[in-house]
């Protein structure tokens, strides 16, 4: 892994969306990045889709009605279609909506968000390989770091 950049010539692109998280998982993600940085792994973290394809999508939090509109606006601006290789759902809220699963202000977790997206906004977000659920409230940085490391091994061998 030390020679990651030499081997690839590129840095993996992460699209990171906070869809209404309380910050807990976000800060643990930051802690995971700090941990990964110590092992020499590099990522580009994007918070706005500006390309049609990303390597990894990281999503935290239940999808609130307000952020649903922002995310779908972002997708429309990016051309209405977005492809990611892997989707990492951080925390119980992103996995299934958590305690907010049936609240008036959320749409539940990420999976129900994908359904709404197709039905209401006619935008498409395709996950080409795997969807990885990391539960916990909040997630542990070690789990996140391990997952990201494994994904990188899968992508780049």
């Amino acid at each position: 892994m030390q020679t990651q950049e030499a081997k690839l010539g590129t840095v993996p692109e992460i699209l990171y969306i906070n869809s209404g998280s309380c910050n807990g998982c976000d800060i643990e993600l930051l802690a995971a990045f700090v941990e990964l940085q110590e092992t020499g792994l590099k990522f580009n973290v994007n918070v706005e889709a500006r390309k049609p394809r990303y390597d990894i999508l990281v999503i935290t939090g239940p999808v609130t009605a307000q952020s649903f509109c922002r995310i779908s606006r972002m997708l429309r601006e990016a051309g209405g279609r977005l492809e990611v290789e892997y989707a990492v759902l951080l925390g119980s809220c992103a996995c299934g909506g958590g305690i907010w699963y049936d609240s008036y202000a959320t749409l539940g977790g990420f999976d129900s968000f994908l359904n709404y997206l197709r039905r209401v906004e006619e935008a498409e977000l395709t996950i080409r390989k795997e969807k990885i659920y990391i539960t916990g409230c909040p997630v542990r940085p070690r789990d996140v770091a391990e997952t990201l490391r494994e994904i990188l091994e899968k992508i780049y061998g």
């Binding site: 209404g20 998280s21 309380c22 939090g61 239940p62 609130t64 009605a65 307000q66 952020s67 922002r70 305690i99 907010w100 609240s103 008036y104 202000a105 959320t106």
Partner: peptide
């Protein structure tokens, strides 16, 4: 703002 409005008070 209020994109994080999750309806916590109602819950």
């Amino acid at each position: 703002g209020f994109y994080n409005h999750r309806g916590i008070e109602k819950v």
